[in-house]
Design a binder for these strands. Sequence first.
DNA 1: GCCTCTAAACTTGTATGCTAGTTTAAGATG
DNA 2: CATCTTAAACTAGCATACAAGTTTAGAGGC
Lengths: 225, 225
Amino acid sequence: MKILERLPRENGRDYALRVIKDNIIHLNLEPGSQISENELSAELGLSRTPVREALIELSKVRIIEIQPQKRSVVALIDYDLVEESRFMRNVLECAVVDLVCEMAGPEDVERLRENIRLQKFYWDNFNPDQLWTLDDHFHQMLFEIARKSQVFALMQNISIHFDRVRNMALFSVKDPKIVQDHESMTESIACRDPVKTRELMEVHLSRYRIDAVVIRKAYPQYFKN
Amino acid sequence: MKILERLPRENGRDYALRVIKDNIIHLNLEPGSQISENELSAELGLSRTPVREALIELSKVRIIEIQPQKRSVVALIDYDLVEESRFMRNVLECAVVDLVCEMAGPEDVERLRENIRLQKFYWDNFNPDQLWTLDDHFHQMLFEIARKSQVFALMQNISIHFDRVRNMALFSVKDPKIVQDHESMTESIACRDPVKTRELMEVHLSRYRIDAVVIRKAYPQYFKN
DNA sequence: GCCTCTAAACTTGTATGCTAGTTTAAGATG
DNA sequence: CATCTTAAACTAGCATACAAGTTTAGAGGC
């Protein structure tokens, strides 16, 4: 497992949560593998308590399966859950971009464009991690503009299923259309065209569904069904 | 605080969570009031650990505010959050009823109708608690029919903000239209009319927004802004 | 009376020990 | 050798002690 640096005033639970999530998404904690509170706490330099609290939270979104008094395992990729997560994103993001087209001011559009510029830069210089972060920020900005931050936060919880697959896609498919999607959406937001933006978002999010076939072939042992 | 009965094989954390949530919704734990891990654990006959785990979960949806090393308080009613919660329900439920109109079989429609019959019964016999439970079940059934159970579970987390207000509405407004809404939706689902069903859902959910004005006058001290 | 400091009494965060249940593996028995 | 028994070594759930930080109350000085 890859141990990240602990942030300045971050408490143990949030630190554990951040590290564990990161390692699940990047497959350092493999789907189906057993995880141990003792082992994790030793690696993280914490006691069992904060680690346990983090694991409980992850079990709520079914990315970790706690079998009482038996074991805890990283959930296999359950494509029904990935699909639920995609459905949730699709529906919520499409509704949000409608609001964004109404609510976005010029400075909001400029922030989005700045994000796109950086995405292009990191695409040209092949930096998937940064690209990944910027993608997240882009979508988060949309929710902030629409004043739906808490909805975004909740959506992200289940999105880990989606993210795990998306992360595999970034390496196994490497679709340049993703950055283009973001750019097109930004410009149609600038034009305050909700119909066009919504269409673009649907296409954008559907790419991950298409990619799944490829991923499944690359990592069949990680899939539940 | 009202202490509920502990279920057969329910663990301490889930028990604490269930009791605390119930008391928040029914205002036995008043908005703005301080809560103590020690006090709660004593009342529930548990140690701090499971109670604390429950509080952490509730803090994730901002219904409880944990101030590190200071105190924990039941959040005041933040109408922005209620609105986010309503937005989320609205968007997701409308998308779900579209699917339901496609996916519902005759036995699903019959289950919905049976629910309506019970709602009418408990309306006539004035049993708000049962009515409340049946309302929840009705919406849950819609998500189950559309195979989006996990989305429903997540939505319920934030819905506690909405539910707290909705509960106040049941007593201060007592709108008979709610049961009628459910019945109309069920029949338009039976007719597989997604447009009509979606319209009905929008109207149905918007009732709670309208009620808020009344509630705010009845309980001004519970509101944040 | 009114500040200022200090110590005690809180709060949540973390560590650790114990309990209850499951798995594993060694050993006894046929 | 195969199978059953049993004990040890795991697991997660829970209880409790302690650490770190905040608030409160009161003593002391002015």
